[in-house]
């Protein structure tokens, strides 16, 4: 997988350096990917975005903008946006930098599984200093 990532750049990035667009609401932030890359109509793309938000019971944030939502909702929106892209792999870089309160990591991982219906490869990359955040985590950890 690492070789594939290095050679093809076939991944969507979720990191502090790829924030949501502040002048779009959550639904529009997700829908933009399908609108641009698959030329899906705004209505259909937003319906699809709302379907994904509904899956993890956060459809109430659909019309809210970044400044009115919490970090975990922002993270889920970023994840759904990455799932909308055609890339087979998703790389999450330093989750504690995106999500402020990461106490319930297994809940987050559970929601990632619910959202990942297309079975994309999801990889979380982090530094050793953040290792304590992942204690008791259900996913395999490779050092």
């Amino acid at each position: 997988m690492q070789e594939e990532l290095q050679t093809q750049k076939d991944y969507s990035l979720i990191s502090k350096n790829t924030p949501l667009l502040a002048n779009l609401n959550m639904c529009e932030n997700i829908a933009i990917i399908k609108e641009v890359h698959e030329l899906l109509s705004i209505k259909k793309a937003e319906e699809l975005a709302n379907e994904y938000l509904e899956k993890i019971n956060i459809s109430h944030i659909s019309l809210q903008r970044v400044q009115n939502t919490n970090s975990i909702d922002i993270f889920y929106t970023m994840l759904i946006r990455a799932l909308m892209s055609k890339q087979k792999n998703i790389i999450i870089i330093a989750m504690p930098l995106i999500v402020n309160d990461i106490k319930y990591l297994n809940d987050i991982l559970n929601n990632i599984n619910i959202l990942n219906a297309n079975y994309k490869n999801i990889l979380i990359l982090d530094t050793i200093t953040n290792e304590h955040y992942y204690k008791g985590c259900l996913c395999p950890i490779i050092k």
Partner: peptide
């Protein structure tokens, strides 16, 4: 805010 970076990363022209 690095939002332009997001657009580049997601290949939005």
């Amino acid at each position: 805010n690095k939002e332009l970076n997001t657009l580049n990363e997601y290949k939005i022209d």
